[in-house]
Design a protein around this nucleic acid. Structure first.
Lengths: 175, 175
DNA sequence: CACGTTGGTTCAATGACCGAACTGACCCTG
DNA sequence: CAGGGTCAGTTCGGTCATTGAACCAACGTG
């Protein structure tokens, strides 16, 4: 499409990447998918995104192999969107972007990300300074910080208040 | 602004960051600034961006302290936009985004990024695997790869064909 | 069989982005 | 000193994307 998405004149992998994940809302959807959000309605209430835009983004992300649409029950047919390895590959980008945002624009700490094996806070790019290794995403422990609203309105935010590992499927019904 | 830019409901440093650099063209402008592009016209011809959008983005980036507007000659008053430390802080994000784009969408190698001291190609987040250190941005050497058009139309792309360090001011007149 | 849940689609209005034209300050050349 | 060129924008009408609200459809429950 000639307008809004592509950067036709750019011979650049950064521009290629931005054509896929550079649209409004897209990286936040990937972030939520890394946090364990999988269902249309959970994305909807957590992001406050227009329904049509969410449907369009989920379709694009599925077509690009970043999410995978998967049927999780048959009788009312219901699908969930699970992040793929290609999507998990965006974690360092999202991590470093969040770190930059916190350093320059947030006063209070909103969340901590730790290496689950040793409890050390992750370094700038998702590595563990103590172990000296790149921490696999499923071994990242996410904990709420003091800057986070302790009693948010929507159930997804409430579920994300508990310490939890990335990629772990979110259970909103149990709240 | 209620539409287009902000993510009001999100308590999240990633969302804060995307409110600043998540708009169309913005990260490509920061990328060019890291490559050494400084002048309005050089951004313009290299990006193929509408003039009004470029002017708006440069103003926002200047207000946010990511670029700094600096007078470089008086007689016809001319300003250049130089990247600040805050802008340089986006390098890991841009680097990891470019790496993800190349891994998943580009066949041929477009550019190499090496540690100027030892010639080793940078790791995923801008570190030097040989030296084991995070490479300062000014010590990153950028070289053209085989996938890059050897004879591009605009002078900025031509100037960027030569091996050069990041942040080194671009000279388009000498081409 | 009314009602709720889930996962959408449709629609009119609004905002953002587009390319092209125009402006204005200055320089250089003949 | 008139004409043309450069640089850094601003203005403008048209097009595209995003928004919020309403609507729809399939199924399950009371």
């Amino acid at each position: 499409m000639a307008l809004g998405k592509d950067y036709a004149t750019q011979e650049c992998s950064i521009a290629r990447a931005l054509e896929i994940v550079g649209e409004r809302w897209t990286l936040l959807i990937v972030r939520d998918a890394l946090y364990g959000v999988r269902r249309y309605n959970d994305f909807l209430v957590h992001l406050g995104i227009p329904r049509a835009v969410l449907a369009a983004r989920l379709q694009t992300l599925t077509e690009e192999g970043i999410l995978e649409k998967r049927r999780y029950q048959e009788s009312p047919p219901r699908d969930e969107y699970v992040i793929t390895d290609r999507g998990i590959g965006l974690w360092p980008t999202i991590r470093s972007l969040g770190r930059w945002g916190r350093e320059h624009y947030d006063e209070a700490r909103l969340r901590w990300f730790r290496h689950a094996d040793c409890g050390t806070e992750l370094g700038p790019y998702g590595e563990c300074p103590a172990c000296g290794t790149l921490v696999p995403v499923e071994d990242v422990l996410m904990e709420p910080g003091p800057g986070l609203d302790p009693d948010p309105a929507d159930p997804v935010s409430r579920a994300l208040l508990k310490p939890r590992r990335l990629l772990q499927p979110l259970e909103t019904s149990q709240v």
